[in-house]
Design a protein around this nucleic acid. Sequence first.
DNA 1: CGCAACATTGAAGCAGATCAAGGCATGTGG
DNA 2: CCACATGCCTTGATCTGCTTCAATGTTGCG
Lengths: 178, 178
Amino acid sequence: MFGLSEGTVRLFKLLLDGRRHIVSLALPGEFLEMPTVEQHSHSAAAIGEVELYRFPRDQLVAYIRSRPKLMSLLLDFATRQLNLAQDQLVMLGTRSAEERVLFFLTTWRDRIALLKPFQQYLPLPMWREDIADLLGLTIETVSRTLSKLEKRNVIRVVPKGVILTGLKLSLTWPRAEQ
Amino acid sequence: MFGLSEGTVRLFKLLLDGRRHIVSLALPGEFLEMPTVEQHSHSAAAIGEVELYRFPRDQLVAYIRSRPKLMSLLLDFATRQLNLAQDQLVMLGTRSAEERVLFFLTTWRDRIALLKPFQQYLPLPMWREDIADLLGLTIETVSRTLSKLEKRNVIRVVPKGVILTGLKLSLTWPRAEQ
DNA sequence: CGCAACATTGAAGCAGATCAAGGCATGTGG
DNA sequence: CCACATGCCTTGATCTGCTTCAATGTTGCG
């Protein structure tokens, strides 16, 4: 059982034919999996240097289950992760390539902004292939889409990141009723 | 806060432009949302007749948080839902139309099999549009794919369901390491 | 420098979307 | 019991956004 204290980690699944899908990118402060799950459900690989802390599984699970406060926090964490996954589902199920890239950029920006004060320069430590595998696109489409956004002055593509020049809103949808 | 005791419910999100994505289909025994979440994150609509049980939110949350055993169960439930959502992510991110329909059929079959003894006839109470919105396809593609599978003797399409004639395996991927 | 690894760009092909026309149940009123 | 309307499903023809295949460009590092 791992937690991430520094760096970025890809969490992904591989298909038998070698295709890969990135389920999420973990940032400092996040768990790499639900601490209570019996078996690992995905693989993990670092992007650059990372710092992990490790918990011995069995003791941890027992410990957690004996501490209601902690469990309550974990439940909230799980609920949040579930909501993120569902937003990702909607993105993959309905969005065009351009909408996906914009979704990724805004989501990534918002998450990075929680860790350090926001700047125009948004670091993208991952490769194009990672973005592609996260968004269900190909590297070529990601690259082309970034170029298109650059021509439209929404971003500027620079080494290891982008500069956000005209990216304001978060792509959201109306709140649910009932 | 609702639980489902009878029937099937679509859980979906709507986009501003009217597109819809079905996040999941809930079957009897499942919650329609995480009981501890502050705000509804999606909408729900019944497929045919359903039976719900309702909990008063605030009392429930307090009650849950005071019962470690219960919370432990909920945490497991959340973890399971998260894994399901992630499988769905991989499906949307990497699979072709035919693979998606097969994925849906096997998943649906497996879930139905938990509720009542398995038969060749697999009921599909939802409309084609629901399947399409779940798989990120159009109704036409769903329909065509079902026809194609029928020609290949994998299934037979009948009113309100399909008959499984040659559908064996579940589409899975290798277990994760690390 | 020169190579290796990643990124961009172009051209061609194709899976799935879109547009359009029936088809087939089920229900309703004459 | 039939006419026909309504709602969902299927099938066909065409279109298009993304993938695929293929070069070329860029960056960083020994």
